[in-house]
Design a protein around this nucleic acid. Structure first.
Lengths: 207, 207
DNA sequence: GTCTATAGGGAGATAGAC
DNA sequence: GTCTATCTCCCTATAGAC
């Protein structure tokens, strides 16, 4: 399945909003603004203006501003879990699966859903404790994918560190790329960056 | 020089505030609150209450709230640059120097200055563009230390990836530990965590 | 150097017309 | 489903007394 087909099927199941609809467009703009200015500095007036309505009208779609933040995060995790699963299925060996996961996460962070992924990392504290608990449940599915693959590499003796530590280090390292990686400025492509991450972990690029 | 001696000499040079003085205590509380609730959600009333004064009195010490954020960041970088330099001087080989840097940065992030280090990472966007430029200058000195060591390892053929990419990955990975690493809960000591990071990079622990 | 009091501005959210 | 109008609250920062 292509990335677009995955998105379409999630929309059909009502797990993520159609980016063409009113709700989907708002969430997309919200992700952009939250990433750019931070959740707190983004006002409901900013959000409304970004989709061309008045601030009062927002509250027809969402009860509170925080509900918007939560929706951005929930839909992002749902989409990316599906993308990761698809990326892994195409790979055969644990090493190839790891590469697929790294590549897919870098793509999530630096591609179309990058703004929402950055929000997930940097605006976490702005989410209420209750909402955090809900979102964490979804995250566990996603993390299990990684731990399986890293565990297999560890069993093969090709990974010297503990899988759960490596996963947490990679979470930080890959998320952080959003602050510095600029593919459009030339230099490093997404595949090149993936090669660098694999090389850092001791897996030389196979040309 | 011990860590405490380094701190004392920076205080003597007026490069960081004495934690016992009024300014130093405020900055320490500010770091704690900014880390806990975020800069935007922390009010000047919160800051004042944390040191037992009224909000209006704060503005006798700092002209604006943002000036407090900037001071937290500047003093943190100054202290940590000095700590890193000292940590490196004690090591001989590039590998040992890398370990010393990793250990020192993990200690900065998870030790006494951890709150301020986390603020540096997570509240960056809350700093005005002008202040960001000032702080970035200080950061360059700090980063050069890392690139020298990673470059030496690369020359030795013991590092497969590009030094500047590895440094950025490590910045993310090590900063991220602040969100999950809890030494007091047992399990992993700071040295153990350092070993894990080194192992991840392909340098087995030497017992 | 700290206090009290308050100015001045925006913030999130609501109500009811269309 | 969007508009206008507005409520209420709380934020940063200032002023002047002590």
């Amino acid at each position: 399945m292509s990335q677009n087909q995955i998105l379409q099927s999630l929309i059909a199941e009502n797990l993520v909003s159609d980016p063409k609809g009113a709700r989907g467009r708002l969430l997309k703009e919200a992700a952009r603004l939250f990433r750019e200015k931070g959740y707190e500095r983004t006002t409901v007036r900013d959000l409304a203006a970004a989709v061309g309505i008045q601030s009062g009208s927002l509250f027809h779609h969402f009860r509170t501003k925080e509900e918007i933040l939560k929706a951005v995060m929930v839909e992002t995790i749902r989409l990316n879990t599906a993308l990761m699963q698809a990326a892994m299925e195409a790979a055969e060996t644990p090493k190839d699966k790891l590469r697929a996961l790294v590549r897919a996460e870098l793509e999530s962070i630096n591609g179309q859903t990058g703004e929402a992924m950055a929000v997930l990392v940097f605006e976490w504290r702005s989410l209420s404790a209750d909402s955090q608990a809900d979102v964490l449940e979804l995250r566990d599915i996603y993390e299990a994918l990684w731990l399986d693959v890293l565990g297999a590499l560890r069993d093969q003796g090709r990974l010297l560190a503990e899988p759960f530590v490596v996963r947490r280090m990679l979470t930080g390292a890959l998320s952080w790329t959003v602050t510095w990686y600029r593919p459009e400025r030339g230099g490093l492509t997404l595949d090149g960056l993936t090669d660098q991450v694999m090389a850092m972990l001791g897996f030389p690029a196979t040309p």
